[in-house]
Design a protein around this nucleic acid. Sequence first.
DNA 1: CTGTTAGCGCCTTCAT
DNA 2: ATGAAGGCGCTAACAG
Lengths: 334, 334
Amino acid sequence: MATIKDVANLAKVSVATVSRVINNAENVSDKTRETVKKAMEKLNYYPDANARALSQQNSKTIGIVVADVSDPFFGAMVSTVEKVASKTGHFLLIGNGYHNEQQEYNAITHLIEHRCSSLVVHAKMLPDNKLVRLMEQVPGMVLINRSLKNFEKRCISLDDRYGSYLAVKHLIQHGHTKIGYLCSNHEISDSSDRLQGYKDALKEYNLEINSNYIAFSSPNEQGGEQAMMALLERNREITAIACYNDSMAAGAMSVLYDNDIKIPTDVSIIGFDDLLIARYLHPKLTTIRYPLHTMAEQAAELALRLAKGEEPPSNLINIFTPTLTKRYSVNKIG
Amino acid sequence: MATIKDVANLAKVSVATVSRVINNAENVSDKTRETVKKAMEKLNYYPDANARALSQQNSKTIGIVVADVSDPFFGAMVSTVEKVASKTGHFLLIGNGYHNEQQEYNAITHLIEHRCSSLVVHAKMLPDNKLVRLMEQVPGMVLINRSLKNFEKRCISLDDRYGSYLAVKHLIQHGHTKIGYLCSNHEISDSSDRLQGYKDALKEYNLEINSNYIAFSSPNEQGGEQAMMALLERNREITAIACYNDSMAAGAMSVLYDNDIKIPTDVSIIGFDDLLIARYLHPKLTTIRYPLHTMAEQAAELALRLAKGEEPPSNLINIFTPTLTKRYSVNKIG
DNA sequence: CTGTTAGCGCCTTCAT
DNA sequence: ATGAAGGCGCTAACAG
């Protein structure tokens, strides 16, 4: 692969001049610029990004770690950050944590090794203390979907508990009292917070919390199927179901259909996240909106600022509030 | 950020020794290794990946370009390649082409600049001649979902036309004769090939090709809605619909429901790709299986081999054959 | 406007 | 088993 030297030789100029052309410096005569460009073209020259990063001490790349790019939730997150990155002339490096502490850690350190000055990190398995150490070392590191003590200003998260509370309250206000909950079995705050929101709503309306009404499984379609089946086995009286997320709701709906239970006539169901799929299930899913796009965008911009040594904007929203998106999967009872 | 020199100083050894520890070289005494590791720990040392890549002339990273990571189809593709990468100790660099020639080109050159020795490229807008030039320059570059003349051995693609033919034949065999087609409006071979497959099947059974039965729109849920509405406006007699992909099918189904048209009682529908969503639509979608996982895996492994200067395995499958996945969205007519 | 040169952080012979 | 030193490709003063 051709180097800057090859180009300089061919164009009969110094490497400095070639470098200037690469970087669009002003002080190069049009004629020289032309010959250099021709030489680059002829040699199929691609400036080595690693060498540039080393020399400039700046890799112009922003890193992101998510649990799994192939999950639509994280896909949307990555996509948003990518847009911010490319708009500011950065390249995006992605790491997958796969819901595993060690892999989350590896992903983050990999990005640090690549000298990403800005980091948007979604890591839920890594314990606080390890995260703290990393946050101290990397000023451009921002946490998304998690709030870390003493670093609140560098965290963008959602009030999960409130979102879930909203969902269940919506069901209660439609007359439901026997409300099941499909819970994620991941041992992270998202799961416990959302479950807590469910309980909050029940308590507020003096409804009993029945552990038979709660089923745990993986927070995806298949998990939704399993959890729904478990719930069905144990109860016939449930008239409404709140779900950890839209994917579980989709799985649950398919099981309900298989059992000839009509939605929302027989059973109402509500999701969480408001992913694309919610609009294309039948009936269209009523759900809780997770303002992922805005949050990811803010996180990316914050990371960029912090990396430059700037302060977080004073009006920055660190904890977002979910809202209800009404569609057609919830009915008044009776 | 600490450098190898800092570590060497603190550990009172030379940088060479530190380098050996970093690379797990044999010839370092246990004692020295210990002190060096302690020093690294103390300084929060992260070896600079850019410097290593430069010095080793090998970035240990594989690059992938897709149209859009946030699209579930490409999410799955990226995820598969990522697994191959991490299994072989590589890091993954992702570029988005956004269905745009210039952006596809930029994405690829970015990856080349980062000295990814292996490249898995999904680029459909870039014309053949540009692609040829790149393929010539980068021996570890592999094309996915596209076949390039004279580079067939470095391409992994699907027989789109046959897949679509299979789908429509399936509908015909269920007695349908008035069959609509929801076509992608992207001007790429995928669109025209799949449309051609639709026509092939009709011809084989001596059915008329009616241009009123074909609607074009974006190959996503929203496009499916639009195309379906267009079809509905123009025809009442259609009893079955073949779709460019599952996303369009999902959009179409939601429109059919909105218009009180029952699936599959009134209208049968068939998708393409067999993404996760197909199993969670109601009714579960009959579709054409795109063996994406296998294909992406093969592409990644091929790219890795080629980068090492090895030949493609002789038994490599370059053109995959789609298959039919029967579910519940297609009925016998009448 | 252009060239010379000293690093950037790390690896890799080659000595010792 | 360890150290010294040149080089990877590029940038950034500094000179001219």
